[in-house]
Nucleic acid binder design. Sequence first.
DNA 1: GTTCTAGAAC
DNA 2: GTTCTAGAAC
Length: 253
Amino acid sequence: MPMPNLTVLRTYALKPNPTDLPSSVLFCHTETSLTIFDAYPKAMFHFLVLPRVIPPTTTSELMSLRSLLAVEKERAWGIVEMLGKDAEQVRGMVEDEMVKRYGFKWDIWIGFHSVPSMEHLHLHVISSDLISPALKNKKHYNSFHPKLGFFLHLKDVLSWFDSDPSYFDMMSGLKKDQYEPLLKEDLVCWECDKAFKNIPALKTHLQGIWDERVRREKNRLEKKRKRDHEDEEAAATQTSLPSNKRVDTGDAS
DNA sequence: GTTCTAGAAC
DNA sequence: GTTCTAGAAC
């Protein structure tokens, strides 16, 4: 069994020229960050935004969120803020792709794992469906549950910088003992709070939510298509109001 | 972070 | 008997 490489993200972040990376790895990059496809996506869309290593910031400061939050507040803030800006660009690209592929968009979460498994800071950009063959166990699911507390939303992390220094100090400790137990919590649907006995049952539920969403969106698009079609006909016959504002007179003509 | 698999859970 | 979880990986 090959031992997985837990430092591969750092080798990516150190590339002087990110475009050397295979296109199967690199999604996009800026002067200060690169965004890669998560190798084991836990949702239909799942990317990691990594800070590039730019002096005076060092690889060891960029090891994790915890190590970054230990450097001077202003410099740490600048890096988190920069990652957030670049993640928002990625969000926009993902939303475009959602519309292109499915005709609608759904939530995208942006945040850090409180206890990371791989070295080098990485900001997750992940779609809220949580449907993926690589999502296989409770730890995978709970690590992205948006209300459980293990997943730290970017907005919340940024808010720590504006709060009392004592609160910042408390949160920035990111103690393993405080967060790791959350991964063992019972399986609960993040959307409807229903509990599940095991992962296969939860995955069936998530798939059901998705199938229902697709069905509703199809109906919506079909209704809109019909409305627009009627409006075209109405315009052709000089009827003034769009069909969705018209009062039904029961006139069949 | 994953894979593999023993044995728990059903 | 099969499904599923959870701990080891030298």
